[in-house]
Design a protein around this nucleic acid. Structure first.
Length: 597
RNA sequence: GGAGCCGUAGUUCAGUUUGGUUAGAACGCCUGACUGUCACUCAGGAGGUCGCGAGUUCGAGUCUCGUCGGUUCCGCCA
């Protein structure tokens, strides 16, 4: 089929092009047939241009009258100044006076109208993803993604990093997330795993002497999904030799500064602040504190302040080793006066119950500075004074208090903090708050499995001062081990995570032993990396950032589905191509696989 | 694995609280009119397995149970 090929894009022409003869190719976004004159908005990824068909041109007019939405057309004609400009679009001052019109392809009536203010639900949009992507907002997401992609590549190339492709088919490792498995046809009964991350490969590349590695790569995790979690996702994977934590921070901060500057023109201050994991947990009840609300609602521990009270609820908690803690919301937080009504405080009580608490204590400070709460009658003078003092409560302040097991209380208050911040609009979207969370625990004890598991991955090195506890049998000592491990948090979202690694075979074995792998099992599962460490492994460390999350944050969406071309639903299915899907028996036979009934 | 919300025309929704006439609206679609629109306007029209399956009832979009799908959160995500 021969047709008039475009000379310009649909977002390109302006008053400067008047009198030029041009050809536009694109999709019919909207037709306005006035009976005589016909206007058609033609769209491509660059924009929209109005074309005009005069009634005097009878053949073209008849063709134009039959155009439907999303038809693909070619329009040739002269650029003319419009009688009345449409300043909402960049090409709004001109239009094309059509001399030749060709229909390159027709379109069925679409399941939903392709328009910026789309009405269709997400599942329908996912099924017809190609239509949804025609919308500027969706297209802009992909374009932004590309911009960030190029910035990252350029940055690391300029910094002398080497990009290496690591295998997609790799060995399944028992620790960490559930692997996606790929059955082997040649080795029946054996499986490859898709990488949860190229962790082992990048560390072995360090042993190879390739001291600065980067890869923007796909990773796969067979775990339940969320708005910010897809079964396959993209990560900026970095590893370096002869570095310590501050070197990793430095190279990362420069990267983020550059991305934020070059993609959305925001100047980010560096170095980023740092906070230990323990501080983050005790002050914000989260290892990813949202620092946009840093001054208000810091968690305060009240256990000491109220320990002399005769209140049974509190005493029971204290006697069983729990804590009592709360957060204060200032009467004028966020610059505007805040009033928490009975209805609102009840909704928070409801929320606390959902989180598994018996209740939520609510204290209000009156005009005259006196306190008002249903729990006051249970507390003695000393406890009330202690509480007031601990929170520095002033007229108009409110305090919410939870009691129970320590970590549960802290995390409950952390979640309540976010909920209140959202309800009272205390989160300033114009802020860009990066923070490093450091000194994570190396292990935590998994009660259900009755063993220690790595808090991060198993190659994370302990901080020097805790090395001695690697030989300990004492649970408290092992739990106290802090790691050379760090997360980068941006506006309350984890953007990446990394560590200085173990590069010593003996230390690595001790870590494996603590998580319950015998030397034999360790060799079976991770022998290749233990072996590699014996041949002059350099000190090394790195970090990996969630590429999808970065782009989502930059584009202001909460859901990474919005900036992934073909995302999956929360049940890990693709509504467009209908995967996963059954396979024919012959395929299973070749793999030596039989399905259970 | 658990909890919440949603599922009615091509689409987005109302109707479900309190079961009862022919299940409505807007947008889209079709037909006609219209020469400066840009949410064109005007007149007319077509379009429904109320997600699916049981049950209760004289009668179910509406009540009950189950199931499927979407979504949010918890668990999980080294």
């Amino acid at each position: 089929m021969s047709y008039n090929k475009r000379t310009h894009s649909c977002g390109q022409l302006s008053i400067a092009n008047v009198n030029e003869t041009v050809v536009l190719n694109g999709w019919v976004a909207k037709k306005r047939d006035l009976g005589g004159i016909i206007f058609v908005d033609i769209r491509d990824r660059y924009g929209i241009t109005q074309i005009k068909v005069s009634p005097e041109k009878k053949e073209i007019s008849a063709l134009a009258a039959k155009l439907g939405n999303e038809f693909v057309i070619s329009a040739k004609g002269k650029v003319i100044k419009r009688e009345s400009a449409n300043l909402n679009i960049s090409t709004g001052e001109i239009e094309i006076d059509v001399d030749e019109l060709q229909v390159l392809n027709e379109s069925l009536t679409t399941p939903f109208v392709v328009e910026e203010d789309v009405k269709a639900n997400e599942d329908l949009r996912l099924q017809y993803r190609y239509l949804d992507l025609r919308r500027k907002k969706m297209m802009d997401g992909l374009l932004l993604r590309n911009t960030v992609y190029q910035i990252v590549h350029k940055y690391f190339a300029e910094s002398n990093f080497v990009e290496v492709e690591t295998p997609i088919l790799m060995k399944s490792t028992p620790e960490g997330a559930r692997d996606y498995l790929v059955p082997s046809r040649v080795h029946k009964g054996k499986f490859y795993a898709l990488p949860q991350s190229p962790q082992t490969y990048k560390q072995i590349l360090m042993v190879s002497g390739l001291d600065k590695y980067v890869q923007i790569c796909k990773c796969f995790r067979d775990e339940d999904l969320r708005a910010d979690r897809q079964p396959e996702f993209t990560q900026i994977d970095v590893e370096m030799s002869f570095v310590e934590q501050e070197d990793v921070f430095n190279i990362s901060e420069k990267l983020f500064k550059r991305i934020w500057k070059e993609s959305i023109d925001v100047d980010v201050a560096a170095p980023f602040p740092m906070m230990t994991y323990d501080d983050a947990m005790s002050k914000y009840g989260s290892d990813k504190p949202d620092m946009r609300i840093k001054d208000s609602m810091v968690i305060t521990n009240l256990t000491d302040a109220v320990k002399t009270s005769e209140f049974k609820v509190f005493n029971d908690v204290i006697n069983s080793g729990g804590i009592i803690a709360g957060i204060k919301i200032g009467g004028t937080a966020g610059g505007s006066k805040i009033e928490i009504t009975r209805k609102i405080s009840d909704s928070y009580t409801e929320y606390a119950k959902k989180l598994g608490f018996g209740g939520l204590a609510f204290v209000k400070t009156n005009e005259d500075g006196s306190l008002q709460s249903s729990i006051l009658k249970f507390l003695n003078e000393e406890s009330i004074a202690g509480m007031k003092n601990a929170f520095d409560m002033k007229s108009g302040d409110y305090v919410f208090i939870l009691s129970g097991e320590k970590n549960k209380v802290l995390s409950g208050l952390g979640q309540l903090r976010l909920r209140i911040a959202e309800d009272f609009k205390l989160l300033d979207d114009s802020k860009h708050e990066f923070i490093w969370i450091t000194d994570f625990p190396l292990f935590h004890f998994e009660e259900e499995e009755n063993r220690f598991v790595g808090e991060h991955h198993v190659f994370t090195s302990p901080k020097n001062e805790f090395m001695k506890y690697l030989d300990s049998k004492d649970r408290k000592e092992i739990e106290s081990i802090r790691a050379n491990c760090y997360d980068l948090v941006y506006n309350g979202s984890e953007m990446g995570s990394g560590s200085i690694r173990i590069h010593n075979s003996e230390t690595q074995k001790k870590v494996f032993n603590i998580i319950g792998l015998s030397d034999e099992e360790a060799v079976e599962k991770f022998g290749f990396i233990l072996e590699a460490f014996k041949y002059g492994a350099p000190p090394h460390g790195g970090v990996a950032f969630g590429f999808d999350r970065i782009v989502a944050m930059l584009s202001g969406t909460k859901s990474i589905r919005d900036i992934i071309a073909f995302p999956k639903t929360v049940s890990a299915a693709s509504l467009m191509d209908n995967c996963p899907s059954p396979v024919i028996k012959q395929q299973l036979d070749e793999l030596g696989i039989q399905l259970k009934q």
